[in-house]
Design a protein around this nucleic acid. Sequence first.
DNA 1: AATCAGGTGGGAAAAAGTGGGAAATCTGTG
DNA 2: CACAGATTTCCCACTTTTTCCCACCTGATT
Lengths: 145, 145
Amino acid sequence: MLIGEYIHTIDEKSRVSMPAKFRKELGKKVIITPGLEQCLFIFTVKEWEKVSTRLSDTKTDLSFLKADQRNFNRYMFGRAAEVEIDSIGRILIPDFLKDRIGLKNSAAIIGVGDRVEVWNDKTWSQNQEAVEKQAPELAEKLGNK
Amino acid sequence: MLIGEYIHTIDEKSRVSMPAKFRKELGKKVIITPGLEQCLFIFTVKEWEKVSTRLSDTKTDLSFLKADQRNFNRYMFGRAAEVEIDSIGRILIPDFLKDRIGLKNSAAIIGVGDRVEVWNDKTWSQNQEAVEKQAPELAEKLGNK
DNA sequence: AATCAGGTGGGAAAAAGTGGGAAATCTGTG
DNA sequence: CACAGATTTCCCACTTTTTCCCACCTGATT
């Protein structure tokens, strides 16, 4: 289970260390994609298989016949990348993903159960402050489901 | 699985490099067709078989009996081309397809799971900005299926 | 204080992408 | 039918980017 918050440096070559505690679970290859809201998702290979099968399910039909599906697939697949984790636990974040969420020197690496999220550290802390305030209310909503 | 975004040069001879990460999966020959929206589709030979079978499926119908199908097939088949991938991974884009999407010096090469798309790089980034905004909504829709 | 683990930085080797020349093929013309 | 010019194909070479590996730094632990 991936949990916790880590602030790590992004070096000049766009490398970021995965927290040591995540490495075993992540394996040696992960898939990084644009996330919803201002973050990136990092999936294990196994988790990605689940996600991608669901997204491109073509048992019955061709994936490019529906406009919504085309656009969402362009978004999720088109801007995803398979990245190796190097011998000391770092990954390389493609520029187009860095730019998307305004990453420069520093990133917040967040464990969210079955995936990891990458945030611009500033955005992350602002976001957390906001969520902090709504948390009781959000809990209430989920409780009513 | 074909994923990721690459911006490559189109040289004076209309050649474009396929991203190294795609080459193994693409093999040595691909089919390039006009795509939906302002892009081109590139299929592996295997994927193309699926596509063409589905489009000209005669189990239920003869493909030429329906006007819509006739026209769509003219669109996809009529301007499709089989192209070889050269020894260092480049393909040659036919002029009539280049012109269709306004390609000149630079193209965005996008992996969309089971196919590759080629975009004018400007058009691609505009398109993504637009999709970015709808992404949560699209995700919601597809999630409810 | 020494050791260890986690994180950061940088240089060298390898790979990917780009450009261009020469050989082969095609086209049109005398 | 042969030839000249143009186009296409094939291959080689240069440049930039990526990958791999090693070394250093810092803070915690014993």
